[in-house]
Amino acid sequence: MSGLCEGRVVVVTGAGRGLGRAHALAFAEQGARVVVNDLGVGVDGEGVPRGLGSARPGETPVAGPAQSVVDEIQAAGGEAVAHGGDIATTQGAASLIATAVDAFGALHTLVNNAGFLRDRMLVNLDEDDWDAVVRVHLKGHFLPLKYAAAYWRAEAKAGREVAARVVNTSSGAGLLGSVGQGNYSAAKAGIVGLTLVAAAEMGRYGVQVNAIAPAARTRMTEGTFAEAMAAPGAVGAFDAMAPENVSPLVVWLGSAASEGVTGRVFEAEAGRITVMEGWRPGPTSDKGARWTPREAGEAALKLLAEAETPGVVYGSR
């Protein structure tokens, strides 16, 4: 029986470990040929890059986590190549898409997953830590999406059928906020906005764009969800926090089977999938003329009494 993604070419960023690795392996298991991207840095973005292409001129590149995942896929009979470029740069993002096309002749699915953390309370958050986290998450989504979209638009204009998919990675922190993660929360909220715009712009070319807000046990979440990240239960028990629990939804969204699903955000955790519903008009009041500040305040309080209570910011209690 052929897999759900048989014949598709899939790019997964940040796929050397954690969720990205689980996604790459799951796509390969379903018949996809996979480009495994990972720069190979630490959980805070620091450290010597270990990905392919990170060596100085004249040196031999060191095989990092991306190549390890490629080796796993190939050992299981699948097809994959490694990419060690920085996808938050023009050169790295462009070469990522070119790698897929050069190696496998096409690109069908882009999974934007790469990222790292530099958690601080706002009063202690340095400008460099803000810039670094927004760069890797938000810019690191935008640039691969830009170059993939350009490829798909060219394919559509050339008269070739396009059934492309993009799966972006937001977070509960981006939907509700998370204490001590102002930079990360802002970047992940931005990814939701980017997803909605891309879905609206690219639909005419046969491209569907969705986002997930996953929760799983990875290097990035060890500190944030320390209690929930406890060791798995007995052998044979369901490991609720395994990153592999998120991947089936990602694979489906990245497949042709998800036809018609675009501009959506899903939470995925353990055995639960939730369609997230974002900002939409709630209670409203129209005076038909300009309010005074006192009138505006009185009207706002009445509307708030009728409105739904917002979700609790992670870590606030």
Rank of each mutant, 00 (worst) to 15 (best):
T13I: 11
G53P: 00
D102V: 07
V312M: 13
N113W: 09
A213L: 00
P283L: 03
A289N: 07
T274E: 15
R165S: 14
G20Q: 02
V261Y: 02
A187Q: 07
E298L: 14
V81R: 06
D128E: 15
G260V: 06
H23R: 04
K157T: 10
A242V: 00
G78P: 11
T195D: 05
P243D: 04
G105H: 12
G42P: 03
R56H: 12
M1W: 11
S185E: 01
A215W: 11
A237D: 14
A289H: 11
E244Q: 13
T195G: 02
A82S: 14
P49A: 08
K139Q: 13
H23I: 07
A156G: 01
V81K: 02
G236W: 09
G159P: 06
A242C: 10
L107V: 15
F104W: 09
S171Y: 03
D286W: 12
T218Q: 08
L52H: 03
D126V: 08
R118W: 04
G263K: 01
A230H: 14
L304H: 11
G282R: 04
T262W: 07
L4A: 10
A240I: 09
V36C: 11
V312C: 01
V312F: 09
V136F: 08
E29F: 08
F266M: 01
V70C: 09
L175I: 12
T262F: 04
I97R: 08
A28K: 07
G64P: 09
H141V: 15
I273S: 03
V43D: 12
M229D: 13
D38F: 09
L304P: 02
L301R: 14
G31E: 09
A82I: 10
T109G: 05
G140V: 06
G254S: 09
V133F: 05
A80G: 01
E46N: 13
S285I: 03
K146P: 02
D38Q: 00
D126S: 15
R264K: 14
R33C: 13
E298S: 08
R264Q: 15
P214R: 06
S255H: 05
T90I: 13
R50T: 14
A256K: 12
A189K: 06
A32I: 09
W252P: 07
L96A: 10
D119S: 10
A215N: 11
R160N: 14
D126F: 02
R217M: 06
R290L: 14
G53L: 04
P65I: 07
A154P: 00
V261I: 15
Q74M: 12
G64A: 03
L176S: 08
T195K: 09
T292K: 03
A24C: 10
A98C: 06
F116G: 00
G271P: 07
C5S: 15
V10I: 11
W252K: 06
A240E: 13
S247M: 08
E72C: 13
P243I: 04
V12C: 09
G14W: 06
R280I: 03
E155N: 00
I87A: 11
T309L: 12
K146D: 01
Y314I: 15
G223N: 13
V101T: 15
G278I: 04
R317S: 13
V69Q: 01
